[in-house]
Amino acid sequence: MLQVSIYRYNPETDAKPRMQDFQFDTQGKDLMVLDVLEQIKAQDTTVTFRRSCREGVCGSDGLNINGKNGLACITPLSEVVKNNKLVIRPLPGLPVIRDLIVDMSQFYAQYEKIQPYLINNTPAPAIERLQSPEDRAKLDGLYECILCACCSTSCPSFWWNPDRFIGPAGLLQAYRFLADSRDTATDDRLSRLDDPFSVFRCHGIQNCVNVCPKGLNPTRAIGHIRNMLLTRAT
């Protein structure tokens, strides 16, 4: 039997959070963590979590699984279970709404700050704005982000300054638009980032790289932003 320990908290009725233990029979199968949660919810319907696509595309089931952030739907038990124990907590650093569901407002507010859309004030061409295959290739490793928040909520700098540090997810997207050949607001975007917090709270801890379920590298993107700022200002 697998020992599953799940973080439970309902701010409306509970004075403080607690861990609830469940015994789970995997029947020898290497299930995904989400499958375990679904089956536990079938027994105890009050266990609350977010999920949607269950295949690592929507990014709604980002959780702290045995101490490491990841998507429950694409994390097999064999990858995380040690000593037959599975501890599931909400993503750290964000306010808990209930059980495993966190309030992502702060995370989205930072995402909004970097203006996550193409800015181009030149007249729109008749069909579409073209991009060479080489320029398009520069967006690889950036556009794949699904905003699951696994990276930002594993980042100590984001824990301490979620209101001022953009965080790895937002910065990866910031660079995605800085690197886009069709975007004409590069200088304005850089000006908005050159303060002691937005980018420079990154101390290269690299938890973001360690946990990203899509295998992306926010630290490298942040390095690119820093180089762009440096090139522009020196």
Partner: peptide, 8 residues
């Protein structure tokens, strides 16, 4: 007063 100058 600037993140970049502090960093450099």
């Amino acid at each position: 007063r600037s993140g970049l100058s502090d960093w450099l």
